[in-house]
Each structure stands twice: as C-alpha cells, then as structure tokens.
C-alpha cells in the first residue's frame, strides 16, 4: 500500500525540507520512501509543492503526486490560489492538514477530513522565524503510521544535513514534536494503486508558427500576475514624514513604486509589491516607511481563502 502526500507552501517556507524530514522518518520506521520537490520557475513567496510516497512495497511511480491521500497546506492563502492548485486530484476522503489556528470557517474544497495546527506561531515562538519545515513535518507524521522517535531522529538528521547548529536542531525537534502532539489525527485512506488514474501524454498536433512558437504580442502583460500575494510584510509610506526623495523608487527591483503627482510622491503598487522591504531598508528618513505584517484576515477578506 502506497500513501501519497503532497505538501503545498510558498517558496521560502521550506516545504522541500519538510518533505525530506517526513521521508526520512518513514525510512527510519522501516518503510520505503520517496520525496522530491517541484522544480518550477517561481520564486520565494510563490506557490511551490513537494511530493512524498511512503510504502511497504516497491514504489514504481515517480514525480508529481496526482492523487494525494494527504495534502498539507503550509499557507492557507494558497487554498484559493489557482496557481497553487492544492485540490488537484483530491478526493472527498483525502485528508488535509492546514497550518492555521482554527478550522472555523475554513473550507478546503469538499474535503471532510481536515486537521490543523498553528505551525507559524509555534515556529516564530521557537525559532524566531516562520520556517515551517519541521513543524509541518511533525503534523504530517501524525497522520502516518510513523512513531514519535522516528520523527525526532529524522529532524535531527535533516537539520544537521542543512548545516544547522546544535541549538537550532534542538529547537527544530521541539517544534516538530509540538506540532505532532498538537495536530488532531484524522484517518487516512490510501487509494489502491489499481485505482490510480492513468495519465497519458498530451498529443500536440501541427500548429502554424504564429501559434506554436509562443509569440507574445502583448509585451509587458506580465503585469497581470499579481505577485502581491507573495508578500509576508507590507511596506507602508507615511506621507507626512516622506520627503519625496525618491530613493525607494530608485531601488525597488520590481518597479512596484511610481513617483506620482506634482510632488512626485512614491506610490506602492500593492498588487505587485513582493515585500522584499528594500524600500524600507533604504529609505533615509526614519519612520517614513513602516512595515506591517500581512494579516491573514485581510487575505481571507480579499478572497484569497475559500
């Protein structure tokens, strides 16, 4: 029996490492395990996924997990994001872990086996940063036939492997165990391999060059991509302090600041600002740019979570 897991997060939340930890824990428990991250062109803050298969028999599949038995969602704002496609191939019986303080009002498609824990808060408390790998791994292990000891051992192995110091490794173990304990268990029902959907390669017929070469006539239409959702921190300009020096405009890599109006006031385009905070760091006037945490509530309100 193969258990198939798909982990969803944003670039920088360390879902690749989370997958590795669970894979190693499964291996230590005596299973065969396979884990791999998605290779994609998108970056820190953009939706990413990693894949995991755990089995007591040989695993003859590779790559993308089409029919997940477990979905782990490290960032609830991904649920409604079509680019993340977290529900891809999910069945009603697929178990879903969501990194969120409460499941009240949260829907993940029509899935019924939902469970949760606030990994982000635990990570910030223990590690000082929202690095979620060990925590999400702990939560996922809770849903699998893997012991606490194997989890603990796996976190140590993987954290040492990425070069963490002893103190940080201990804190990661704490985080993993806290999330393991805190996540309510829900039943997992692996899909028998015979029932796996078969996927065939898409056949591409002949197309005239105007179509087949991917000619983009509308140059600059990348503006339709709303990279504002990548942001975890929001720079906010206080116009009563801002001297209109323009330095923030100069150094914004994203061209997300324009100098507008007769006084050349900097205006941040929040649809695209990725929250790198270079503007905040470079602004020469104390207090002219402040940083606010991007609230989840706000993203829910703006339709990010359904």
């Amino acid at each position: 029996m193969i258990i198939r897991v798909r982990l969803h997060g944003r670039g920088g939340q360390a879902m690749k490492t989370a997958g590795r930890v669970v894979g190693t824990a499964a291996f230590l428990e005596g299973f065969r395990a396979q884990d791999s991250p998605m290779y994609g062109p998108e970056r820190r803050g953009a939706p990413v996924a990693s894949f995991l298969r755990i089995s007591d028999e040989e695993i003859a599949e590779r790559g993308y997990v089409w029919s997940p038995d477990i979905i782990a969602i490290a960032d609830p704002t991904l649920i409604g994001d079509p680019r993340a496609n977290v529900l891809d191939g999910a069945r009603q019986s697929t178990a879903a872990f969501v990194n969120i303080p409460t499941l009240d009002g949260i829907r993940v498609g029509d899935l019924t086996r939902l469970t949760n824990y606030d990994v982000t808060r635990a990570a910030i408390r223990l590690l000082g940063r929202a690095v979620l790998s060990s925590g999400v791994a702990g939560a996922v292990v809770k849903l699998l036939p893997i012991s606490r000891q194997s989890l603990e051992e796996a976190v140590k192995i993987e954290m040492e492997d990425i070069g963490l110091k002893e103190r940080e490794i201990d804190l990661n173990v704490k985080l993993a165990l806290e999330c393991f304990e805190g996540t309510p268990r829900v039943p997992v029902e692996p899909l028998p391999t015979e029932e796996l959907q078969q996927f065939r390669a898409v056949e591409l017929g002949w197309q005239p060059p105007e179509v087949s070469i991917g000619l983009i006539r509308n140059v600059g239409n990348g503006v339709e991509k709303m990279t504002g959702s990548w942001r975890v921190s929001r720079p906010v300009i206080d116009y009563s302090k801002c001297t209109r020096c323009g330095v923030c405009f100069d150094y914004c890599p994203e061209a997300a600041i324009t100098l507008a109006g007769p006084d050349n006031r900097p205006v941040i385009d929040y649809d695209h600002c990725k929250g790198c905070l270079i503007c905040y760091n470079e602004c020469p006037v104390k207090g002219a740019i402040t940083v606010e945490e991007e609230g989840l509530a706000e993203k829910v309100a703006s339709g990010g979570v359904v």
Binding site: E42, R43, G222, K225, M226, T227, W230, R231, D269
Partner: peptide
C-alpha cells in the same frame, strides 16, 4: 512590468 516571477529582492 511589475509582477515578474523573479525572487523578492533580486
């Protein structure tokens, strides 16, 4: 155009 797929702070 803003909205590129490159990393924040590149």
């Amino acid at each position: 155009a803003p909205g590129t797929p490159l990393c924040a702070g590149c």
